[in-house]
Each structure stands twice: as C-alpha cells, then as structure tokens.
Design a protein around this nucleic acid. Sequence first.
RNA 1: CGGGGCGUAGCGCAGUCCGGUAGCGUAUCUGGUUUGGGACCAGAGGGUCGUAGGUUCGAAUCCUGCCGCCCCGACCA
Length: 492
Amino acid sequence: MSKELTSREADYSQWYNDLVIKGGLADYSAVRGCMVIKPYGFTLWENMRDVLDKKFKQTGHVNAYFPLLIPKSFLSKEAAHIEGFATECAVVTHYRLKSDPNGGGMIVDPEAKLEEELIIRPTSETIIWNTYKTWIQSYRDLPILVNQWANVVRWEMRTRLFLRTAEFLWQEGHTAHATPQEAIDETKQMLEVYAEFAEKYMAMPVIKGVKTANERFAGAVDTYTIEALMQDGKALQSGTSHFLGQNFAKAFDVKFASKEGVEEYVWATSWGVSTRLIGALIMAHSDDDGLIIPPKIAPFHVVLIPFLQKNVEERTAIEAKTKEIKTALEEKGIRVMLDMDDSKRPGFKFAEYELKGIPVRIVIGPRDLANGVVEVARRDTKEKSLVQLEGLEQTITQLLDDIQENIYQKALKFRDDSITKVDTWDEFISVLDGKAGFILAHWDGTSETETKIKELTKATIRCIPLDNPLEDGKCILTGKPSIQRVLFARAY
RNA sequence: CGGGGCGUAGCGCAGUCCGGUAGCGUAUCUGGUUUGGGACCAGAGGGUCGUAGGUUCGAAUCCUGCCGCCCCGACCA
C-alpha cells in the first residue's frame, strides 16, 4: 500500500521510475543527473558483469585500467571524435580549494589553475591510443585485446535513471590489429557476444545490424549495434561494437612494422555495454506489479517465506525446515533470500518480492509441513502450485529454466509482433503513431533523407540488419530506388 | 536552454486562494493481540514549512530574488 506503482498504461515513464526507485535498484542522488546504484541494483549489475567478463576472457581479452582524466588536447586529435563529444564533456580546471576569505566555505583557489585542462573521460579511445603508441612497434606486438571496466561521464541535458545518466558504469574494449579483416572480425565477434548475452542471459531478443552514417559512433568507420524493443514500442540501443579503421592510429601516430618490414598504421576496434542494459531489462520484461528479472542474472533466484507462528514448537519446526530447504537449494547453486522478518506479514512480503522481481517464491507454513509440501509461486506468470518437498531442488532448478525461457519467448513474441513492413509514407506514419515498434521500410540510402525522416517523425534508422535480404523498392519518403529495407523506430 | 509541475516529519501529501504560530496517511520506537495476499489496538518520538530578503503586531500562507528536483521537448549510449 505504501508502494503503489504507476501502471504502464497510466504513465509509462513514471512506471519505469517507480520500478527503479521502489524496486530498490537505484536512487536519485545529490548530484544532478547522477544516481546511486543501491545494493540490489548493483548485485544485478555484478551478475551481468561477471557473465560478460567471462565471455571477454574466453575470447582472448584481458582487463586493464586507464586514467579517468584525459588531457584536453587528446580529445582534439580525431576530428569526428571531438565533434561527437565536445558538447558533453566535464572539464577539470583547477587542482586545489582554499578557505573563502569572505566566509565559511571553500572556494576554488585561483592560483591553482591547471596549465592544460583535463577532461573526465566520456570514453577512452584517446587516452588508450596515446598509450598504445608506446606498446606497439612490430606486428609481433599485435593484436592487443584489452577491456576495461570503468565509469564515464557525459554531460547529458536530460537524464533518466539507468537509461541516460551523467555518470555511468560500463566496459569498453579497445583492440589493435595488424589487418583490417582481423579488426572487422573482432568487431563482429564482440557484437555476437553482446547479442548472445542479451538473449541467453537477459532474455531480451535483439536485432543485430550496422548503423547508418548519421547514427555511427564519432570516429568509427562502421558501428555495429544490438537493438532491443521496449514494451512501449520504442527501440533501445543496447550495445555497440565499432570498427575504427585506422582513424585513431593516424590521430595518435600508432604504426607497426609488418613482416615485410613496411610501416603501417594499426587497425582498431572498440566495443561497449553499460548500466543502460539494466534499463533495457526493466522495460523489456516487467509488469504493473513490479520488476521481472530473468533467473540467470537475478540477484536472488528464490525468496523463502516461512509462516512464523507464535506456538514455539511449530515455529521451531518451521524455522528448522526453512533453513534446511535453503541449504539444499544453495547446494544446487540456487541463490536464496530467506526472509525471517517477524514484523512483516506474509502478504506484505509477497507484494514486496514481486515488486523486486525475484523469480520464485517459496512459502512454508505449518499446513504445508504436515503435508510434506511447499507453495511455489513464479513471478513471471504469477502461478502458484504445491510442490513436494521431496526433490524440491530439482523442481526449482527446472522451474528457473522454464521461467528464463518463458520470459524470453514472451519478449520474442512481442518483438516479432512489433515488426511491421510498410511501403508508403502514410503507412509509416500510421504505424509509428499506432502500434509503434520496429518498422522495415525502404530508404534511398542518403543522410539527407534519414535526417528529414527524423525531423518529420522522430523516428531514426536503428540499423541495417545483418544478413538483410536485398529487395528492390522505393524510398518511403523520396520514392527513389532502394535495394533493401532498413529498420526504423522511435528510440530512447 | 524552452514549456509544465513540485519543494511542508524518513516517504507520500493536505494546509497557501481568504495571514493568527503546523496537520493527515504511512514509516519509526514501546507494549499487546495477530500472521495462508500489503494486520489491529494503545501509547511515544520526529518538522529552521527549499533558501535569502521584504510587507505585517504576526508569514508555510502575501511580494521579490535565488536554489534544487521531476516530467515533456531540442542533444545523446
């Protein structure tokens, strides 16, 4: 009752905010645009991070760490790159405070001005390529396959919890290669890693594709993306992998001597996913009762709620049985939250853990104990059933798999039902303003047309899907010839 | 930066039009009864009313400035 949620229908944005705040994932902070990620939200992030980190290592990458602060001049070295980030950089200008001679507080010491300002990294290509210059002389030094887990700052005008905060956590992979093909293969490989993670772990179907010039990363030759669909029909770019060509190698003069003894510029990639994925997760699956988190990354798989009676004998029996169940489940690798709090009634707890999206709830009362069963409720469908204590671990393990699969299938069906092919401008508008979702339509391939469509409708080309079938057609806006449909949507 | 909304107890709000020294719900603490879908009773504690100034005998309330946050838009992952 104290935690009434706004429904999706009433106000989708507010529903999202309610879930983040009341679900205990994050809080607003004292700093504009920056959030506090609370333990429950951070555990979720850690689970996601651990899976990804393992996949990075399996594909040959190692972790390293580069500075938060970047000399301003570094950012200016790659023309497109600075163009993309200049308007959202936080700048450090001084290195000392002093007591305010006019009052109690502190002021920036005007004597302590930095000779060269430092930028708080919005991304690390520049500092990393400046470093790689010293690491690379020969083809024998290649490839370099480095990832870093870090925070970055982008001074956004408008922020939203997880989806767009001024500071966010992410990983950024930065690789250096001797040949363009090797770099392109790396770019595509990491896109696959992201897509597999999104689908297998987050239970969130994604469309893999290439960005158009308008949507490309500042400084990239090609940007590959995974695009997910949220329940309100808007798309969310959920991860990107960039083929950087020789742009940064040229900007930072990073050359290597090839086997043939010829000096060549190094080929590069970068790729990243961020805490934005948590926003994607929330909007992909959750409902009006709260979060729905897929088991594979959920902070807890199961919440155990015993009915604690006053009768000491009964109470002791239930407590003992509950702990026994907890241990048995944990031995099978199931993450269990045990709620023995006596000050809250069961009904309250049911609602609370539904809000938090714990996939499975197990309730144990005296009645159950007598019958050798427990009540098991699944968060995704809200179904309840009585389950034999005998073999409970197997039942729950199976149930968690079922839930993971069900959440994915539900999201997949929604996503597939939300892809519409249109051939005319009128259809395009009517779908955008009606069912929304992804729209496959012909486009004449020019930046001008894409920009015009964005101005008119706020829809952008999310990507040109990989393995896109070629098909002759006419651009929905200009009527000019087109060789393939591209994927449009309004996006976050 | 434009438009809208809001700042009063931990949280959510009323009170502001019409000035008289702050209230409701919830949460918290104590005690008791409860416990199979957000318990109940009794008692208690908790607020420089965002901030600075002005008007007034008297300001949460009227006037002015400032600050902050949220939502919508332009910008972006």
